[in-house]
Nucleic acid binder design. Sequence first.
DNA 1: GAACAGGCAACTC
DNA 2: GAGTTGCCTGTT
Length: 282
Amino acid sequence: MQHRAEKKGIKLARLSEFDPVKTFECGQCFRWNAGENGVYTGVAMGRAARVWVEKDSVYIDADEKDISEIWHDYFDLDRDYGSIVFNAGEYLDACVRYGSGIRILRQDRWEALCSFIISQCNNIPRIKRIIETLCSKFGEPISAFGETLFTFPSAERIAALKAEDLAPLRCGYRASYIIDAARAVSTGALNLDELAACDFDTAIKALKSLKGVGDKVANCVALFGLHNMSGFPIDIWMKRALEKYFPKNFDPKSLGPYAGLAQQYIFFYTRNGKEGKGNEKL
DNA sequence: GAACAGGCAACTC
DNA sequence: GAGTTGCCTGTT
């Protein structure tokens, strides 16, 4: 409670380098929620943190050891996003200006896989609801900031369940996909750590071997879970933008090794910028 | 009450 | 290999 009132956080970065609102609201993650005063509370990697903006800086309130051992890496703070440039025309330039400050989080691999399986044919409020229910029913409770939060349940925990155990999530036909994925990960049939280190096409192919994982979800998992910047998920918003502003047979690979970051700028601008008027807040 | 949503799989031709 | 349809559920 007094955390919020006093806001005694540690300075994490300059706002120009890391815009937490854009980063949390650009669709890559589902467990950071804005509270009063624009303070975001999130749980990731089994830990809780609060993040907010004051003047031109970003502050974090978290266990001090966790900041250097977990959050620094989670927020990908060693990478200089400002030095990454694209030469693909004015439209992308506008997207980059608009989305400047977005960072691609280094999320837990299993959490990203599970979350993006849930995301299919679904909207963000509902995705968040399903994930929160999943965590509160099967995750571990942790207390932080005077409340009880829940970690994301391990693949092992979910692998031990049956599809009907997930009925309270009301995630429909996705339930069996989640269980299948959890079993593949927990048995080692699908090794996400190895996929994070191997080449892009191999990773996509392996991810798509899971039931319920197609092109879109595989690319989301590659980009947001494996932190493979070649990931280039094309959903309905990206499809519209590519059709309207890019050449007919545009190949994302032409954007270079950070194509996935370009994707995120384009997506964020198309969906939330002047022509976006998305159905969610922002 | 039907159509649809930030997909996928199974099936058709 | 391109096109169609069912799938759970919540929202419009």
